[in-house]
Design a protein around this nucleic acid. Structure first.
Lengths: 200, 200
DNA sequence: CGAGAAAATTGCCAATCGATAATTTAACAA
DNA sequence: TTGTTAAATTATCGATTGGCAATTTTCTCG
């Protein structure tokens, strides 16, 4: 009944493909690049993941899965909601890489305008992240660490947009440290925290 | 002496090429796309502008020329420095287009990481814009419309990053109106203006 | 040990990529 | 008119693209 077993876990190949798309973008990553990155032959990629577009969709979904997992872990017992917020956005920055930026933001610009499916996936992901952050902001408001006059949705949006901007700048070489510093400044402004209040 | 005259202004073709790159990005825009957009035949494009990369460089420089011109005109006799700042960033948003974003930001993500020349041009452009905005902020500080405690460079950077984020979101469909509203909110925060102070 | 099944690999495909050489067309000067 | 010059066009190049059919290898089960 059973046939020849796989030599490699397809998950590892998918991670390699994800990194390839991340580094070069969708269009510029050729099937040849993908075979080199994954170690799999071209036809094996087609058999395992379908065509290039399907492989990209799978890679994006994996990126989101990893990112969501990192978000959940970012709290890690932290009780102070403000610090939880800081951990959360720091984690988002950590998902970016110097010289590469964030795969989601890159794809938002490069492929979402021409690809309804990718656009849908990315929108879903943004909503997911925004919801997570909004929960933390509400929590901070409930314990009066953030003023009740702050509009949660608005605040989250201002932070989210700023994160997009940081991703673009990191793609062009901004360091993660610099990005984090700017980001915490933005948090101070949006949540009307006193400056230099980073960490407790 | 003189030979056959040109049938079309090369400037018009360059504008068309710029729009093509803007809409589809560098890699995805083929020479075939460019011939269709410009109306020129392929070989004419090579003769007039050099290869694809040189044509892209020329298109980027044209984009910056147009953008810089719009920036200068955005003041247009406005005496209130705060309104001059608002006009300036509104002009930046106007350079973006719904569904396309800003050519500079798109290129920053798509090509700057792999192309030193483009990276240099884009960096130069950002510095130019930042300098212009910093001048306006300093002006506002000198007439006490912005607190002297505001760090000009820091403030400009926070606004610039936010603009990058807005461009990314506009590429994925955010309306210019929404972008402007969020942007003015960011100005209020960064320059510590009282909310809803838009326009005088 | 074969028979069968599935993974892995080879080899090839039409289409398109960016880029030029060779040629034709059209204008001005002599 | 004709020679010169340059723009416009045609035709074509080799390389690479994404994609797949055909084949070989390697396993499990009867």
């Amino acid at each position: 009944m059973a046939g020849r077993p796989r030599k490699a876990e397809p998950e590892a190949a998918l991670v390699a493909a994800m990194n390839a798309f991340w580094q070069k973008g969708y269009e510029s990553t050729s099937m040849s690049d993908l075979t080199e990155a994954t170690g799999l032959h071209k036809a094996s990629l087609y058999q395992t993941f379908g065509d290039k577009h399907q492989l990209f969709v799978s890679a994006l979904k994996l990126y989101f899965k990893k990112s969501s997992k990192a978000q959940k872990e970012s709290r890690n017992g932290e009780e102070n909601p403000i610090n939880a917020i800081r951990n959360s956005v720091d984690t988002t920055i950590n998902q970016c890489a110097e010289g590469k930026g964030c795969l989601a933001v890159n794809s938002l610009i490069e492929v979402a305008p021409f690809d309804a499916e990718i656009d849908r996936i990315l929108k879903q992901f943004r909503q997911h992240l925004d919801k997570h952050l909004a929960g933390l902001v509400d929590e901070a408001k409930s314990v009066k660490l953030v003023s009740g006059s702050v509009d949660t949705k608005e605040a989250v949006r201002m932070i989210s947009i700023f994160l997009h901007g940081l991703s673009a700048n990191m793609a062009a070489g901004m360091s993660a440290n610099k990005a984090r510093a700017l980001l915490h400044g933005q948090l101070d402004l949006v949540l009307t925290l006193r400056k230099k209040s980073h960490r407790s």
